[in-house]
Amino acid sequence: MEATVEGKTPTEDGTPTTSQGAGPFEPKIIAFVCNWCTYAAADLAGTSRIQYPPNVKIVRLMCSGAIDPIYVLRAITGGFDGVLIGGCHPGDCHYQTGNYKARRRVTILKEILKSVGYDEERVWLRWISASEGGAFAATVSEMVEALKSHGPNVLTTNWNK
């Protein structure tokens, strides 16, 4: 059973497992990305046919500065193993300073997560410009590998949350 296949997975003894089920662990990643840089980089990875693991799904925002940490919290308690936030390099924000705002918010959120004992390394903030299709693909690959070593998100497997 692949990690990304929907529906519950009854094991042989009939007990349900989570989506991570049997088989090698495939982390699920949600990416909140800026329309002007990282989203374009993902497009560029596409047009350049740069291959990367299919573990990531992209949510387009107009700016990384539009990220609401609620989205990240929803994602890490709602089935995703990692969250990638992609913004423009410092100084390059299409809206002047949105990426700095994102950086503050993500820093606060990660500090909270760390403080409550959560593996905050599941949340990545990366600067990927529109021309960095390769960097986008590499970031996803790197993140998938990193999350594999972290194992499944405990908040995905633990229902008592």
């Binding site: 047009t47 046919r49 291959q51 299919p54």
Partner: peptide, 13 residues
């Protein structure tokens, strides 16, 4: 976007 973000980048899978 199932082309740029999917079919073109996961061609082997």
């Amino acid at each position: 976007s199932i082309r740029e973000h999917c079919s073109w980048v996961h061609m082997q899978e």
